[in-house]
């Protein structure tokens, strides 16, 4: 029999060797809890993240843009599903996660509590919001929990399309009229600060970071990733011909990084606590999709059970009704 201490030592050795923890390994309860919280929050962000952009699918300016936006929103659904799968390997159930989201017991990224006021925002979200997400997610590909890392690899591969389509959309508008250029600048002004806040609170106000780094769940601090994102984004803004709304944004030769102002953390905490412009709307929408989809989930299950019963005894021909209705969760999610 292995003792608790031996199991802990084995776990610590695996982390130390930068090897991966797999679902059936022994792990400290706090590690499991932290991961469930983080992976669930990540999954919820993907699912809620469909709403701000889904808002523009019916009003995309061309068939090409509409096809792109549909594909992108479908990807977000897929990313949510990869991540829910990863959370389930830790012993959380899918329904329980959704119910906790709807009840406000688990969070999602605050960025999605900001509205998309114009179609331009689809481009800005692709460039800045997905850009920030990539910054966050690339190091997570090497996170210590195997299924989470594997989900991240899959997500990162697809995320690059998201960022590039957004940037290309904005480039197209920048080649347009003065009014279109103003729309781009206005949209960038609105999203810049919320995008910086996506990396989470500053390091000295992020109590979980140290433990998460010790466990190899996180490999970089919030402030490190935020700095990296700022440094990456500035040349992209210059190439696009827009500015960021921060007068303190300038190159610091000594640090080898751009300096920037402190984000408004009061606003951040206020949105986290539920007072952002769209918090209620996002949850209400998710709840409606969940409630209105209940009969589909139940009917599909009943049909499957009936078919199995019909097929099992005495071979009385094939099951009635060869194909059931197809309740694809992805389309359920995107339905307005």
């Amino acid at each position: 029999m292995t003792t608790e201490a031996q199991l802990e030592a084995q776990f610590a050795d695996t982390i130390e060797a930068k090897d991966r923890i797999e679902p059936r390994d022994w792990m400290p309860e706090a590690y499991r809890k932290t991961l469930i919280r983080q992976v669930a929050q990540h999954a919820h962000s993907e699912i809620i993240g469909m709403q701000p952009e889904g808002n523009w699918i019916t009003r995309a300016p061309s068939l090409r843009r509409k096809a792109i936006l549909l594909a992108k929103v479908q990807d977000e659904a897929g990313h949510g599903l990869y991540l829910y799968s990863a959370a389930e390997t830790l012993g959380a159930s899918r329904n329980e996660l959704t119910e906790k989201l709807i009840a406000g017991k688990q969070k999602y990224s605050s960025i999605f509590n900001y509205p998309t006021l114009s179609y331009t925002d689809v481009g800005t979200i692709g460039w800045l919001v997905d850009g920030a997400a990539i910054c966050n997610q690339v190091p997570l590909c090497r996170t210590s929990f195997g299924p989470y890392g594997r989900a991240m690899i899959r997500v990162c591969k697809e995320e690059s399309f998201h960022q590039r389509q957004g940037y290309e959309l904005l480039m197209t508008m920048m080649r347009g009229t003065d009014e279109q250029r103003e729309m781009v600048q206005e949209s960038v002004n609105r999203f810049w600060w919320p995008a910086l806040m996506m990396f989470g609170p500053p390091d000295d106000d992020s109590p979980n970071t140290a433990q998460s780094m010790e466990w190899g769940i996180k490999t970089h601090t919030n402030d490190e990733l935020r700095q990296k994102f700022v440094d990456m984004s500035i040349p992209q803004a210059e190439a696009l011909g827009v500015t960021f709304p921060d007068e303190n944004l300038k190159w610091n030769e000594e640090r080898g990084h751009y300096d920037f102002s402190t984000p408004d953390w009061d606003e951040f905490w206020s949105v986290v606590k539920g007072n952002g412009p769209c918090n209620d709307q996002r949850i209400a929408h998710r709840k409606r999709a969940w409630d209105e989809g209940a009969w589909v989930r139940e009917a599909a299950l009943a049909f499957a059970e009936q078919s199995a019963e019909a097929a099992a005894p005495a071979q009385t021909g094939s099951a009635p009704g060869q194909t059931g209705s197809s309740p694809a969760t992805t389309t359920e999610e995107t339905a307005k």
Binding site: A71, Q74, D75, G78, L81, Y82, S85, E88, T89, R94, R150, A151, R154, E158, R297, A300, L301, F303, A304, S307, A308, T323, G324, S326, P327, A328, T329, T330
Partner: peptide, 23 residues
């Protein structure tokens, strides 16, 4: 490649196509 929920085998295949083979 991962897992998913489905009511039966046939729908599991369809969902797998949508979730894991979009490209």
């Amino acid at each position: 490649v991962g897992s998913l929920h489905a009511p039966d085998d046939q729908l599991a295949l369809r969902h797998a196509r949508d979730v894991y083979t979009r490209r």
